[in-house]
Design a protein around this nucleic acid. Sequence first.
DNA 1: GTCAGACATGAATGTGCCTTCTTGTGCGAG
DNA 2: CTCGCACAAGAAGGCACATTCATGTCTGAC
Lengths: 139, 139
Amino acid sequence: MSDSISDVTIAKHDVQSADCRKISQVLARIGEKWSVLIIMMLSGGTRRFSDLRRDVDGISQRMLTLCLRGLERDGLVKRTVFPVVPPRVDYELTALGRSLCEPVVALGTWARDHTAEIDAARAAFDQRANLDGRRPDDD
Amino acid sequence: MSDSISDVTIAKHDVQSADCRKISQVLARIGEKWSVLIIMMLSGGTRRFSDLRRDVDGISQRMLTLCLRGLERDGLVKRTVFPVVPPRVDYELTALGRSLCEPVVALGTWARDHTAEIDAARAAFDQRANLDGRRPDDD
DNA sequence: GTCAGACATGAATGTGCCTTCTTGTGCGAG
DNA sequence: CTCGCACAAGAAGGCACATTCATGTCTGAC
């Protein structure tokens, strides 16, 4: 195994996996618990903090703040502070954020269409694991 | 706020957010660190454990095992054990797993195309945060 | 007997998201 | 003065994924 062959192989592979790793990072971010909910809500237009808070079932003020901050940091969301009292803060998707909606919707469509299959697979897997009392085998 | 209006509003909203939550769960799963790498590798055809181990830079035997088991449980991957010594175990995408590749690739394309923007947004956000020594404002 | 190969798993630890609870800010109303 | 409003943030703890290290399994070769 000469260095030149090893370099070529690794270099080629790195290019591929660098893409995959970036995918993975993006997925990890938008896969955070509240991200998609919030992105999809903002896809309908600018919303103020309290609107979002009320409409996202189960989210706390704290989590909403954190999530919005993360999305803002990624450039997906724009935050607008109004110099009024009581304070008012609006959030809207940026162009980047809006461009993310399509692939997210596509993935969401896939998830919705295949939920039953995934759940069934999990149930079957767990049943096989329980029956065997160990790792299920295919032999 | 009568019960009927409240019920209608909540019911309608739950339907939407139930979808979003399922999306979020799926995203969280495939957003796990190694999932996409492994899915995309298997998209090229059946691979044996040790092949995957060698080709995924940085993954340990342990993490590969765990990740593959998770994907198998979700029905995305099929595991085939050969009754030979030394042991041989092959993994391949199921039809479900293959159907996932398209949306994942679409999202990956988006991520690759917008990496620079996200990175720039992050840098800008962090710089604003540092300059202000506090929460950046848009006023 | 030991060792190797290929894969799976147990145990302990680290990390980061998630959550709850609490406090802070800046004004106006009473 | 206290309280309310709308939003942001600090502190502490929980939980699950990720990691490292070690061990286990089943055979064949030596």
